[in-house]
């Protein structure tokens, strides 16, 4: 996986800390897109009640990230800064789903796109290709 993120946080006070925030947000976003999902059954029982079934992103699920900036100053505060805490988590899930749908060639991919979901999507692409031939 290759990951590039460009953010505009206006003036940055401490880039090391800001980049750390971006990394963490992306990881949570990738988690939502590929791994995480709380599941209740039809009787309202939570069936993902531990890390055995709720899949938390681990180090080997993620790549290193390329993070960089563009800067436009925020005119509505004295420092010209913008918030950065949630940024990564906002843009990441949909970028992942857009990439997977691009790879499989159709739009029918749910979140989280688990191995089983991706397998099903690949099966569907094969069927669609066959139908088109």
């Amino acid at each position: 996986m290759k990951w590039t993120a460009i953010d505009d946080f206006g003036i940055v006070i401490n880039p090391m800390i800001v980049e750390g925030q971006v990394h963490g947000g992306i990881a949570q976003g990738v988690g939502q897109a590929l791994l995480e999902g709380a599941v209740y059954d039809k009787h309202g029982q939570l069936v993902t009640g531990s890390y055995m079934d709720y899949c938390m992103p681990r180090a080997d699920n993620l790549p290193s990230f390329n993070v960089d900036y563009v800067v436009t100053k925020c005119p509505s505060n004295p420092l010209g800064i913008k918030g950065c805490g949630e940024a990564g988590a906002i843009a990441a899930p949909v970028a992942v789903v857009n990439a997977i749908t691009n790879a499989v060639g159709h739009e029918d991919v749910p979140m989280p796109a688990t191995p089983q979901a991706v397998w099903a999507a690949v099966q569907k692409s094969a069927k669609l290709r066959k139908a088109a031939e």
């Binding site: 059954d41 009787h43 029982q45 939570l46 069936v47 993902t48 009640g49 055995m52 079934d53």
Partner: peptide, 13 residues
């Protein structure tokens, strides 16, 4: 069959 509470939360597999 239906189970609830901790068994459902932790015993999925």
């Amino acid at each position: 069959a239906q189970v609830g509470g901790k068994l459902a939360q932790l015993g999925q597999r």
